[in-house]
């Protein structure tokens, strides 16, 4: 099993009270499964993804991903886990503005154990002709494709996408989702994203 969550809870303190963002979440996700996480705002989607990806920690329960127990991992171990195991795609791209498309992807490739070919990945997302451009010279959809290339380049066991189309128009969203599906099949493992197929204002 790639991901195993057992009675996972996460609470946040709000003023003098506390708020449980996740309560007793138990689920297992095998390899090569494409999972969509749906739910209203505040339902815990991002918290769940962040815990699976080692960005956040659970307050109760156990979390195992690729056999690694994240529940008791140190910050150093979590950093190593994220670097070796997880590819992230965020809603707002988080690209490095003063690096070109190729350099943004190269940064991740340089620290990966078994990176894929940069040219092949850029070609797969249709950005090879734009490899020398800077993020500010790209559209939102193109920037998200860079973000996807950066996540995929290290050939991660787990690809997590948190609202990857949240800031894109419908047509561009469809293209990005198609790329996400392609990137998870047939060779790579599950992708989780929240709020799939959101028709943002065109």
């Amino acid at each position: 099993m790639l991901i195993e969550l057992n009675k996972v809870g996460r609470r946040y303190h709000m003023g003098q009270g506390e708020f449980w963002a996740l309560k007793d979440v138990t689920l297992s996700i095998p390899e090569s499964q494409l999972v969509t996480i749906l739910g209203p705002s505040g339902s815990g989607k991002s918290t769940l993804l962040n815990i699976m990806g080692g960005i956040d920690h659970a307050d109760t329960g156990t979390v195992r991903v690729t056999g690694v127990d994240l529940s008791h991992a140190s910050e150093r171990d979590l950093t190593q886990f994220r670097r070796d195991t997880v590819g992230f795609v965020f809603q707002f791209f988080n690209l490095i503005p003063n690096l070109t498309v190729r350099e943004n992807v190269e940064v991740t490739a340089d620290i990966a154990k078994k990176p894929l070919s940069i040219d092949e990945v850029l070609d797969a997302v249709g950005l090879l002709p734009m490899a020398d451009r800077f993020p500010s010279e790209l559209s939102g959809g193109e920037q998200q494709r860079v973000s996807l290339a950066r996540a995929v380049i290290k050939n991660p066991s787990l690809l997590l996408a948190d609202e990857p189309t949240g800031s894109l128009d419908f047509v561009t969203s469809r293209d990005i989702l198609r790329l996400l599906v392609q990137s998870t099949r047939p060779t790579t493992p599950p992708s989780c994203w929240s709020r799939i197929m959101l028709p943002s204002p065109i």
Binding site: G9, R10, W20, A21, L22, K23, D24, V25, T26, L27, I29, Q33, L34, V35, T36, I37, L38, G39, P40, S41, G42, S43, G44, K45, T47, L48, V181, P190, R195, I196, M197, L198, P199
Partner: peptide, 30 residues
């Protein structure tokens, strides 16, 4: 196309099912 849908509500799993189909925008709850 997705293999599986996990629907959350108030931090709990409300639904977890295998689907093997496209998720439509109308299904998304804000």
């Amino acid at each position: 196309m997705t293999d599986r849908v996990i629907r959350l509500r108030s931090g709990e799993v409300e639904e977890d099912r295998l689907v093997g189909r496209l998720i439509k925008a109308e299904e998304v709850t804000w």
